[in-house]
């Protein structure tokens, strides 16, 4: 359980002349839930996307299960067990729930589609009620569930979640995090990028705090929850 599933070493990422990530190093062990918190523009989403090769890292290394994937194509990464639920949900609006889930199987082919879909419906019963409804017609929370379920359809070993609480009502956020906790218990490795530090830190085994493209702090979720600096910056000081 202590072998790192993914390891980032001194990662530099640029958008044109602007350096978004400055020598970021972190690692995630198998079965762990790790979160990355930070304010707007700190580079959290960039970090997540650069694991997927978009944008490409200019310097440093990304090791996935010991293999260097820094320069591998996105679909290679996707078909080898990393899945992502992108920021802002990004479900396919004109497709039904079932079709959206089927799209998630593209990296690995649809041989397990039926049983995986059934698994998703057990995890998110709301989706089963809406299985033949177009994604556009669903609420934000349901769309977020769909985005997570779609990512899980490719049977990932590592699940990357980009702000699953974005624009959702507190009660829905609670539901989503409850489901994530369930998911973590099944042994899934989750890397969570969040602004909602309170929820994220309570869920996580470990966490990193990112400021201006650099990792500022690191520790277990509990340590950071009581850390003075974190409390002032991200938890509203109370």
């Amino acid at each position: 359980m202590t072998r790192p599933i993914i390891e980032l070493k001194d990662l530099d990422v640029f958008y044109g002349p602007i350096q978004a990530l400055k020598g970021v190093s972190l690692h995630i062990n198998e079965g762990e839930t790790v979160s990355l918190i930070g304010s707007n523009g700190a580079g959290k989403s960039t970090l997540l996307m650069s694991i997927f090769g978009q944008p490409r890292a200019a310097g440093g290394q990304i090791l996935y299960q010991g293999v260097d994937i820094t320069h591998k194509s996105s679909h290679y990464i996707a078909s080898n067990g990393i899945a992502q639920s992108p920021e802002g949900r990004r479900v396919f609006p004109d497709m039904t729930v079932e079709e959206n889930l089927l799209m998630g199987t593209i990296p690995i082919g649809d041989k397990h589609a039926k049983e995986d879909m059934q698994r998703m419906f057990e995890l998110f019963p709301r989706l089963e009620e809406r299985r033949n409804q177009r994604a556009m017609t669903m609420s934000g929370g349901e769309q977020q569930m769909l985005a997570i379920a779609r990512a899980l359809m490719s049977r990932p070993k590592l699940l990357l979640l980009d702000e699953p609480s974005l624009g959702l009502a507190p009660i829905v956020v609670k539901q989503i995090f409850a489901t994530l906790r369930e998911l973590a218990k099944t042994g899934m490795t989750i890397f969570l990028v969040e602004q909602n530090a309170n929820h994220a830190l309570k869920l996580s085994d470990r966490a990193y705090v990112m400021v201006n493209g650099e990792i500022r702090l690191t520790g277990t979720g509990k340590e950071l929850l009581v850390n003075e600096e974190v409390r002032n910056a991200y938890l509203g000081g109370h």
Binding site: F52, S74, Q84, P86, F92, M95, E99, P107, R150, S154
Partner: peptide
Amino acid sequence: RAWEALREDEIACRSMGL
């Protein structure tokens, strides 16, 4: 289905490694 997905949301397609 990939064509339709691309029409609907290209970023989502990329994030799925399409």
